[in-house]
């Protein structure tokens, strides 16, 4: 080692920087493990197990929890998503329109439905719509109402996502399409929107996950036994059996759907990243 090299070395006083770093990391792990152990030790697992994990109660939920409750949850979510996507697309295009009033209407819609809790919209659909339009039935009964309520909420979020996606497509794409003789509408449908959707597929899938959870709000519309979804089904059974095991099972059923969806989102995000490169 030359003299210049040694001059660059910091004077060793106690621990080096690297040693300090690994020491601090070690302390963090220790605190974390201690906290988990303390939590696990103080909780009364026996009582929890009694209340939440009764094997025979869980068994008696099958197959209904899947064939009825999960099926309805999926059905509500998918129809709500479809309505939301269609309506969101219209609102996004209105938001980007060169016609002022379209933009204003779309802006007001987004502000209102993004600002209100989904719960209030469900109550509104259940109560206000029959009052305002007496005699009219929303097609599909409860299923139609849920699709509408979820769709109205989702549309506001999706409109903003779709708008951002459309704006993320480079301006040159529209110019190239127009220079080839595409009309603005046809360029939008054939060239811009397909590219926008590739960009917004991950956030749209996230929206689907959110809708899965919001579909539990259907209980505020008043549903028949056949129309119950996971949350309502779990709660009903929990009060019947005076035990919370059904809640846990219903919760696991949600995760059965949302965890794989989250995995799909991450895969898509990674793929989009790759395509950008």
């Amino acid at each position: 080692m030359t003299e210049a090299d040694t001059a660059l070395q910091p004077k060793r006083k106690g621990l080096s920087r690297r040693q300090k770093r690994s020491l601090s990391r070690g302390v963090q792990y220790l605190v974390f493990v201690a906290a988990v152990v303390a939590f696990a030790a103080t909780a009364d697992w026996g009582r929890l197990k009694n209340q939440f994990a009764q094997g025979d109660i869980a068994r008696q939920m099958f197959p209904d929890v899947i064939t009825l409750a999960l099926k309805n949850t999926v059905l509500y979510t998918v129809t709500g998503f479809a309505v939301g996507l269609a309506l969101g697309m219209v609102i996004a295009l209105m938001r980007l329109s060169s016609v002022g009033p379209y933009r204003w209407v779309a802006g007001v819609y987004i502000e209102i439905f993004r600002g209100l809790p989904a719960l209030l919209i469900f109550i509104f659909i259940g109560v206000a719509v029959p009052l305002a339009f007496p005699g009219t039935e929303i097609v599909g009964g409860t299923y139609g109402k849920v699709a509408l309520a979820l769709g109205l909420v989702a549309a506001a979020y999706m409109a903003e996502t779709i708008r951002a996606g459309i704006q993320a497509v480079p301006k040159g794409q529209m110019e190239a399409a127009r220079s080839l003789g595409f009309s603005p509408a046809r360029a939008m449908v054939s060239i811009i929107i397909p590219q926008a959707f590739r960009i917004i597929l991950p956030p749209l899938t996230n929206e689907l996950v959110l809708l899965f959870k919001d579909s539990s709000l259907v209980l505020f519309l008043g549903v028949t036994l056949e129309e119950r979804e996971l949350s309502k089904y779990g709660r009903d059974l929990a009060s019947q059996t005076a035990n919370s095991t059904p809640i846990l099972v219903a919760g696991l059923c949600y995760l059965l759907i949302t965890i794989p969806l989250g995995f799909v989102v991450r895969r898509m995000e990674a793929k989009t990243q790759e395509a950008v490169k």
């Binding site: 220079s179 397909p194 590219q195």
Partner: peptide, 13 residues
């Protein structure tokens, strides 16, 4: 009228 752009503007999808 055909037009060719500086940034090509091919449709990437």
């Amino acid at each position: 009228i055909g037009m060719v752009f500086q940034q090509f503007n091919l449709f990437p999808h």
